[in-house]
Design a protein around this nucleic acid. Sequence first.
RNA 1: GCGGGCGUAGCCAAGUGGUUAAGGCACCGGAUUGUGGUUCCGGCAUUCGGGGGUUCAAGUCCCCUCGUCCGCC
Length: 329
Amino acid sequence: VTPAQLKATGAEMVLSNTFHLHLQPGEQIVADGGGLHRFMAWEGRMLTDSGGFQVFRVGDINTINDRGVVFRSPRDGARIDLTPERSMAIQMTLGADVAMAFDQCPPYPATEADVAAACRRTHAWLERCISSHTKPDQALFGIVQGGCFPHLREESARVVSSMGLPGIAVGGVSVGEPAEEMHRIVRQVGPLLPDDKPHYLMGVGTLPEMAIAVANGFDLFDCVLPTRLGRHGAALVGGERWNLKNARFRHDHSPLDPSCSCPACTVHSRAYLHHLIKTDELLGKILLSMHNITQLVRFSSAMAQAIRDGCFAEDFAPWDPDSPAAHTW
RNA sequence: GCGGGCGUAGCCAAGUGGUUAAGGCACCGGAUUGUGGUUCCGGCAUUCGGGGGUUCAAGUCCCCUCGUCCGCC
């Protein structure tokens, strides 16, 4: 979607990816283009991921030790050497408003010993990130690890909270663990974080999971889901996922979601969206992505209103007419 | 009229006597959680144009028939 289209959804912040931008086009080109905001013409806030997650996700790691990670570029096989210092340098060059610490995100499942080692390394790397981060107009957030082990989570939350950073993230979730595990971690760790700093839950997620997280003190999220679902033909409607490929939409000329203000819903029909998706038209993916982002923004606004009105809870579902928070939707 | 080729799912097809008839597209579902992004997974022919025969066994061989394409008159 274009920056103007994204702005129209009500979104205020964009996450950009250090790993991918480093591989292509390279951070120097972004800097030469006036920095990330100007390069992509996004006037709102921006955050860059550190690349730590992609290292674990993309695999093909040559070596990983206390110094950093060496792996092969999945794009052209080139050797990539990523350390906390290097990640900070790249992120400072990119110039987002928020940079993320370079962490080690263990896969799921992982042994307690492996997760404990990843925590130690993540904490040591965090100190190096702090030392090498010298861009005063850019915030640096630390990341809590600890997998599914409560005592490791608790220790990591304590260590990361003690660093005096302007924001704290919880990572190592939504990496393939059962949803209940993730909810347990969110409920445990959220309350352990300092009240006066933004809490960022990385990689989450679905609307119900955002509500659980907000109920436990989280403020910030990022997730591929709204756009990935959009690209694959699914729409978030009334708390459900609808697959627009389904034949039931072929003759349905009503609006996708009559209560939604996005272009997909206000100017097009379900039958047309179905047709665009079935014919693999780029416009279908764009419209559904915009719709899904709009739903996320709308859900966030509804949560904020419900908190002000004293009717917010973990099972927040404002689209349900029987919900005490129905008026926020 | 004569000679030859071909008929297998909605489409393109593999199969040349031996367990439950490849595969692809389309179609019908499902999945997707710190962006590897046109992805992944599952379903979809009790039957091979139709009929008869040979054989323990036929999509495969034989006969008839229908359809279709090519060549020659």
